[in-house]
């Protein structure tokens, strides 16, 4: 009975791993293997020489950076305020942040286009605002969960009693104690921006994912090679987050002995 249970568990894990590994493995073979079986980095070299693709990658990284900064500026004080002043509203706000998951991208895209001021419509950086909302279901939860692990009321009151103003409390007391959540929000937001296609395509901006799709039409191996590399990049980011999470929990847990 135990053997069967172990076998079932092992099979389940093996299927899970294969589900993730096989497509990446197959894509890697397709992109990096020559006809004679040897391997080549030519697709990456050709991608690096593709100026449009590199420009779109640079633009996407800038948008990712902007999205991360705006997300943190918006969420950290807001969630701190929710925890401190209106904790009863947290459930409602959490529910609201889920809306990007249930509204179809076409509806969001068109709504976004209509609601943007005209001056914003002319720049791809307008996507930052859309991506902040799109990343909310993940970024909000990561930061909210981190705030829930600390006694924010006592830390806030202690800081205030020692003479700290709200900004000092946020910067020197709260942020250092929710670093794990912040990193989670940052990595998940970057991963989302690096892979977001629907908005950029609908709004006709050449970001990395849309250019990747275009490149795939003419040079499939380059597009697949870049997909594999960006997938691995995101995978490394998420693993770094997990490792950081574990190390952080060992280093500074709350409470005493």
């Amino acid at each position: 009975m135990n053997f069967l249970r172990e076998l079932f568990r092992f099979s389940l894990i093996a299927v899970g791993i294969l589900f993730f590994i096989l497509p990446i493995y197959a894509s890697s073979l397709f992109a990096f293997q020559e006809n004679d079986g040897s391997f080549t980095a030519e697709p990456l070299r050709s991608a690096a020489q593709n100026e449009e693709l590199m420009e779109s990658l640079f633009l996407t990284l800038q948008i990712a950076m902007g999205t991360v900064v705006l997300t943190l500026l918006l969420l950290i004080p807001t969630i701190a305020y929710l925890h401190l002043v209106i904790p009863g509203a947290r459930a409602w706000v959490a529910f609201l942040t889920l809306t990007p998951l249930v509204i179809p991208p076409i509806v969001q895209g068109v709504g976004f286009l209509y609601s943007m001021p005209t001056s914003f419509k002319a720049t791809p950086y307008a996507l930052i605002f859309a991506y902040v909302i799109l990343a909310l279901p993940f970024s909000y939860r990561a930061i909210d969960a981190a705030f829930s692990t600390i006694d924010i009321r006592t830390l806030y009151d202690a800081s205030r009693s020692l003479g700290a103003n709200f900004v000092t409390v946020i910067l020197r007391v709260l942020i250092p104690n929710i670093v794990t959540g912040i990193f989670g929000a940052v990595f998940l937001t970057i991963a989302l921006v690096l892979g977001e296609f629907a908005y950029a395509s609908l709004l006709l901006w050449d970001t990395f994912p849309t250019m990747l799709a275009v490149a795939g039409l003419s040079d499939a191996s380059t597009a697949v090679a870049l997909s594999v590399v960006s997938l691995l990049g995101v995978w490394i980011l998420l693993n770094a987050l997990t490792l950081f999470n574990r190390r952080d929990r060992q280093a500074i847990p709350m409470g005493g002995k």
Binding site: I150, D151, T154, D157, A158, S161, G163, N177, I252, M254
Partner: peptide, 20 residues
């Protein structure tokens, strides 16, 4: 006057040291 400007010292029931 706000708490930060009152020049008080306070010790709480809960452990209130900054963990970082």
């Amino acid at each position: 006057t706000s708490a930060s400007a009152r020049d008080i010292g306070m010790v709480f029931q809960a452990y209130s040291l900054f963990p970082n």
